[in-house]
Amino acid sequence: MTWLEELAIVASVAVALTGALLILSDNRRLLLATLAAQYVFAAWLVSLSLPLQVAAAKLVAGLLACAIIAVALANVGWSDQFVTPETIPSSMIFRIIAVCLVLLVAFGLGGDIWSALPKISTLASYGATFLIAMGLLQLGFQEEPVKVGIGLLTIISGFEVAYTTIEPSLAVMALLATVHLGIAVVVSHLLLIGSGEKPRLEG
């Protein structure tokens, strides 16, 4: 058993914490740094079922996605405020309570929800559930491109942690990595359009 497997509980807890921080924080720099850290821990969980080199490729794709969003944010400004829909309560207390409740539910479901998948380790299944739960909560809170994009990337990271145990083919992994990059490109496009900048794509 390698140290990555022995200490996998660290990665499993860390993805829950980074997922929570992505919901609670409104600072765009901190959001991107947290997302990058989340990719590191998600790659760690993926490495429990795949060779380390393949997990590293996933990490690189994730970090590239962060870089794409960072470039767009650098163009539109890091300090813009997020606009929360009026129908959704957005106070910090409310968000903390929601995050705690959803993490509790995810913890309760974590062991069983992936039971049909034969090769997934218990810690990876908890990590996948935490990521998907936090991503879904993120989508429920915001309609702003950066936050929605981060929510989607979090969900897909969680899905990949589970899915790579059952579908280890390189082609599918490459396609899933491209999904991360594609979402980052779409988020950047929406950011630039929303800020009045003209994306290159538009000419």
Binding site: P145, I155, V186, H189, I193
Partner: peptide, 25 residues
Amino acid sequence: AVLVLVSPENPNHRGGLRLLILYTL
């Protein structure tokens, strides 16, 4: 589809983002 729907003439991203979320799920 999101890139086609959301453009400088139509910067409203609500429909596009929902499309992306739903198709991802």
